[in-house]
């Protein structure tokens, strides 16, 4: 593909404007000092102060972070195992079932995942709280981790691991010392993706959370239902800022690594 035409430029400008305009407006108006969100009266950090003083937000943020850290780590480990299985073991009993269970959560509407986990927990008398939230997040983010890791694993040359085993490495040691360093960027990407999905999730969480395990997105959803508020604007802008800088830093790190490597 080559030759960039004016039509392409228009499509790009229009597309990116559509994607970014709403987010930009939200960030700009979070610095508005007016109570009415859409009427600009002056620049102020007022709503950021209110946001940080809000205890409910702080508690919910803490729950969200803990759930995300634990679930993304477990999901990445499980995803790595699933990826190794899918890429290497071509034929085994139940392969179709396994592939189905790995890929289906990618497209399954979240309300269905949510209700089935809720009914599962209720049916087996498991109290809803942090634990159920973590289990649910692991279950749906694991699929994404598997896809990211397996796409890198496909390109990995198996003979390297075989060579290590010929030289006396155990199967597990060979994986740890030869394969893992090679797929490390994909593992890191899978972890980040799971983390982001978990931090962001509202639908599944809404179904499986219990008293005392309200996450930030659940809290935001209940206040957004009531209408637009400047405090939520400030919170949104903060989250957007955090995510954007994290993604940019991650990209820069990856860039410098590839430059150094080759």
């Amino acid at each position: 593909m080559s030759r960039f035409s004016p039509f392409n430029a228009v499509a790009l400008t229009f597309g990116f404007a559509f994607l970014y305009m709403p987010i930009m407006l939200l960030v700009i108006y979070s610095f508005n000092e007016n109570d009415l969100v859409t009427v600009w009266t002056g620049f102020s950090f007022k709503w950021y102060g209110e946001m940080f003083a809000n205890r409910g937000f702080r508690d919910a943020a803490w729950v969200t972070i803990r759930v995300a850290l634990i679930s993304s780590t477990v999901a990445t480990l499980l995803g790595m195992m699933a990826a190794v299985t899918l890429v290497r073991a071509r034929v085994f009993f139940g392969r179709t079932l396994f592939t189905g269970m790995v890929y289906t959560p990618l497209v399954m509407p979240e309300v269905i995942t949510g209700i089935s986990l809720l009914l599962f927990f209720v049916n087996f008398n498991i109290d809803r709280g942090m634990e159920t939230l973590i289990i649910a997040h692991i279950t749906f983010t694991m699929a994404f981790a598997t896809v990211v890791i397996s796409s890198r694993l496909i390109d990995f040359d198996m003979s390297l691991e075989e060579a290590a085993m010929d030289l006396g490495c155990g199967r597990f040691e060979a994986f740890l010392r030869v394969t893992l360093p090679n797929i490390a960027p994909a593992v890191a990407a899978a972890w980040f993706l799971s983390l982001a999905l978990s931090l962001d999730d509202v639908v599944v969480s809404q179904f499986v959370n219990g008293p005392g395990s309200t996450t930030l997105p659940i809290k935001v959803l209940s206040s957004v239902r009531l209408g637009v508020s400047p405090e939520i604007n400030a919170l949104s802008a903060t989250l957007i800022g955090l995510v954007t800088s994290a993604v940019i830093i991650a990209t820069i790190i990856q860039k410098t690594r590839t430059v150094r490597e080759g």
Partner: peptide, 15 residues
Amino acid sequence: PFWTSYLIRIYAWKA
């Protein structure tokens, strides 16, 4: 935008 919260992006349209 996919990494920034789904909820926030819908909320932005509300405003």
